[in-house]
């Protein structure tokens, strides 16, 4: 469980609070989306979830433990953070070693390390690159490598900062599958993203941040109905939501994916003949 109470944060030498009075509880088995305009404080918030940043005021607790009381390494075992920019995370000489790095640091046995690395390589289609330098991978492949490295150590919370940047459609679909699979294992996945179409397919609990304040926290459908809040947060609507609004009341429910929208339209158009 991640519990955030009255969190305020400002960077050293700055007078302005980047986060203001944040209150949140995120339990196991949840998918949570965090969205908001550029500079709204999303990344600053998630850096509190593994103790990388400590509150200026208020508290953040991970499984009941205050993030001020233990090291980042301690919390990282439970909370894996995949950065937006793979360059901030990759530093080993080969893809294999990159994935094995954290596992070695956490003191796993050699046999387990080998099994986990092999699994991660296969799962993310990276086996062919195991002896390659990560620097030679494409942007999208580097991104997958970062995710593979974090999943290999099996944390309870997985935080993904802009996971779809540089990812093609197939990788995005796979990412949705992975997230759904992780949820069935009672893991929690927190996704920070600008990609409204991706978020819509994921249908998470959605938290919107504007200017360091949580302005909305609710289910995906109710959030995307709130025009004023979307405007405030620099968000556009997913196309399926737009379509629903254009065709309401001809269609009465928001379709969550293409399959659902297709059957709604088919019924509508065939019914008219």
């Amino acid at each position: 469980m991640i519990e955030v109470e009255s969190l305020y944060f400002k960077y050293p030498l700055s007078n302005d609070y980047v986060l203001k009075d944040i209150n949140l509880k995120i339990g196991l088995g949840e998918v949570v989306g965090i969205m908001g305009g550029n500079g709204s404080g999303k990344t600053t918030l998630i850096k509190h979830f593994n103790g990388l940043l400590k509150p200026t005021k208020g508290t953040v607790k991970i499984f009941g433990k205050d993030t001020r009381e233990e090291s980042v390494a301690y919390f990282s075992k439970k909370v894996g953070l995949v950065f937006q920019n793979p360059g901030h995370q990759i530093f080993s000489d080969t893809v294999w070693n990159e994935i094995a790095f954290a596992l070695k640091n956490f003191g796993f046995e050699e046999e387990i390390i080998n099994k986990r690395v092999k699994w991660a390589l296969e799962f993310f289609n990276l086996t062919q690159y195991k002896d390659t330098s990560p620097l030679l991978l494409s942007g999208g492949e580097k991104k997958r490598l970062c995710l593979a490295s974090v999943l290999a150590w099996n944390p309870d919370f997985i935080i993904l900062d802009e996971p779809t940047v540089g990812q093609d459609f197939l990788q995005k679909e796979k990412l949705i599958e992975i997230i759904k699979m992780l949820i069935t294992q009672n893991k929690t996945v927190i996704v920070v993203s600008h990609d409204v179409e991706f978020i819509w397919l994921l249908q998470p609990r959605l938290i919107l941040i504007s200017n360091g304040v949580i302005v909305k926290d609710g289910d995906c459908k109710s959030v995307f109905k709130d025009n004023a809040i979307l405007e405030k947060c620099g968000l556009t609507k997913p196309q399926l939501v737009e379509l629903y609004e254009e065709l309401y009341p001809l269609i009465e429910q928001m379709p969550v994916d293409i399959v659902e929208a297709h059957s709604m339209l088919l019924k509508l158009l065939r019914g008219s003949k």
Binding site: F169, L170, E197, Q239, L240, L243, I258, H262, L266, L269
Partner: peptide, 23 residues
């Protein structure tokens, strides 16, 4: 196009799927 990793926008994917139903 999907096979090549191209995410066809939903509004176009819908038209493509409806075409299969002779619409």
């Amino acid at each position: 196009l999907n096979l090549y990793g191209v995410g066809v926008p939903p509004v176009i994917a819908l038209q493509n799927n409806l075409r299969d139903e002779d619409i």
